[in-house]
Each structure stands twice: as structure tokens, then as C-alpha cells.
Design a binder for these strands. Sequence first.
DNA 1: GAGAGTCGGTTGGATATGGCAACCTAGTGG
DNA 2: CCACTAGGTTGCCATATCCAACCGACTCTC
Lengths: 180, 180
Amino acid sequence: MAARPATPAAIAASDAAGAGAVAPARVPAERPRGRPCAVAAGLDIVGDRWALLVIRELLFGNHRFDEIAHYTGAPRDRLTARLRTLEAAGVVIRRQYSDRPPRFEYHLTDAGRDLAPVINALRAWGERWVVESPPIVVRHACGQPLETVTICRHCGQKVRRADLKLESRAEGWEIVRHPR
Amino acid sequence: MAARPATPAAIAASDAAGAGAVAPARVPAERPRGRPCAVAAGLDIVGDRWALLVIRELLFGNHRFDEIAHYTGAPRDRLTARLRTLEAAGVVIRRQYSDRPPRFEYHLTDAGRDLAPVINALRAWGERWVVESPPIVVRHACGQPLETVTICRHCGQKVRRADLKLESRAEGWEIVRHPR
DNA sequence: GAGAGTCGGTTGGATATGGCAACCTAGTGG
DNA sequence: CCACTAGGTTGCCATATCCAACCGACTCTC
């Protein structure tokens, strides 16, 4: 598996190095509270108001600051800060495409592209439970509107909640104490 | 907090009657900017720092205020506020299980349970790109650690990004101007 | 019947973050 | 010279968030 640049430690380190003069950033540093969990760790990176929308636009093929600002609706200063933290987390890379004047584009790394399933799951949920009619239609190669099913890679069966067994490896953070 | 006008709450209620009928919902009034999009609409409901962690715990079987506060690490006042907005959005319901003293539990609605794929996708991403070793192991019924694949329901093929065709139905919000 | 503990919150105050418009720099085009 | 573009930065203010402390209505234990 590829490099894993996104550990909170790495972020904290690169932030301390003081590369940019921007936003003191909400770097995770520590999450002393709460269950240790990959979900929480992921949310530390993409769990704010704009991050996933930025990544949506990058997946759509909009790579420039003004495009992203326009299509997400994020305030420009927030966008600047978020792009920096996403870069520090290894989710996007900033690429200069013009020397003079200096101009930049933002692209997804492998880690960033790998967020597509998260966004698709969220889109599916939003379409089902929130919006009236989908403002964006995603079609699969087969020509039909995309409807996704999640299956287990090992056995090929559809994943149902009842079929999952959870096991906590963190002491003091047991799961399901009262399975009500 | 401006109570979110019972958008999806109505859906859950009318779900029984409404066959395949979708959402008498209206797109959240309060996102005047940015591309209209089910992802953004979803994030308006579960896109803050704590919402998905709360839902994670409810999926784990922890239904009481103190449990949720402890396992998520959310400050109690934030938790109160988030539970209220999630309730207003129809994602959780608040259930009294004791009259005297008054005591309450929080449970997921169908809409809330339907967020499991989002959380699983996020867990997969976090395990791959953020954490060193998964603090929680999810096993499928087949006995193997769960690894998920997303497939298209129509054709059964694995969904790859290159196979997706996007089509915006919102005027002025076209997609992919430079598919770089 | 005194004291401690449980549960589901509120309250107050400090701090961090977000939103907005205006501004800046270094160019290009006319 | 002027207008315009891209990619931000700055200042100001409003709101959200964090945290610890507190509270009310019980129950449990001694």
C-alpha cells in the first residue's frame, strides 16, 4: 500500500514547520477524548463543513481556486485554510501551473480520490432522505442511473448490518454494552 | 438554533404509505450558495464534528446520553444541541423510558440506520489512510474482516470512477469543465 | 435519614471559527 | 493608462464551540 501521509502526527509536524503563514488550522493534534476509531480519525481530516465539498469539486474536474470557491460556496479565506490542511493531510496537492504570475491548481492524491466512496454514500443518502429530486444524476457505464450496493469482498455477499461483528481492540472502549 | 423544519422527519412518517415515493422534502433553505447537490444537503444535516460519531455510537448500541457523551467525547452541551438537530432532521428519535425520574434514550430512525454505509466508507478510508492499525475490527458473517466493494445495482459491475457519467440538472451549475 | 451516586441535561464565560467585503500583488490585453 | 484575472490576505464582527460547574429529581446504601 502506498505511503500514508495523513497521520495526525505528520500533520502536526508539517504544521509546526510553519510552511504557510495561514490559519493556525484545526489540526487534530490529539483526540484525547472519545473512542479511538478510524471514523473519528477520518473526520478529523474531512469532517468539517467544506472539506468534502472541495473534494467533490476536485472529483468533478474543477481544480482552480476560484472554481472551487464558486462551486462549493465556501468563503475564500476558509477555502484557503481548508486547502492547506487537506494538503498537509496528504489529500490534495498544490501544483503550480504558471510561474509568472504564480498560479496554482489543486489535485487529489490517491488518498483523496479514495474518498469518492464516502461522497457517493453521502450522495445516496442525501438523495434518498433529504432532497426532493437529485440535482445531479450519476450514471454508470451501463447507462442506468447509478445505484450502489455494498458487498463484502471476501464472500461477495451484500453487507447487512445484522451480519457484522464488531470487536474493539482498545481497552476500556468496549462496544455494545447494552444491545437494546 | 434554528430548528430545521421537519424535513426528512415527514419522510420517515410517510414512508409506510408512500410506496416508492420520495421526499416531500425541500432542499435546505439555508445554503444559498454553492452547487445544489445531495452531498451538500446531506452535509447540512450530518456534516458537523459530532453527528456521525453520535450515529456511530447508536449503531454500536449505546443509546443513552451519558454513554454517547463518553464514547464520542462530545461536550455535553454540544451533544444536546446535536441530538436536537438530528431529531428535527428525522435521523434519531428521543424515547422516554422512565417517567420518574424522566429518562430518555436515543434511537436511530430508518434514515439514521441508512447512514451506516457512509460511516463504513469513512471507516475504510480512515483505516487505509490515517490510522496505524484499526482500533475496531469489523467482521462480516463470513468470518473475514470486512472489506467492502461498491457495485452498481443494475449491472453488478464494480463501480470505477472512470465509468461514471455526471449530469447536472441545475442550470448554471455545469460539471466538469476541464476533466484534467 | 444522611450522603453518595445516576441521569439528562443548563448555565456562564473564554476562545475559536466562520462569514463577508475590501484589499493586494503580479501579471495580461487593449 | 485602464480594466480585468487569479489567488489569495486582512479586518471586523457574529456565531459556534469548549469546558467546568451546577442543578433537579430521583435511587441506593449504610
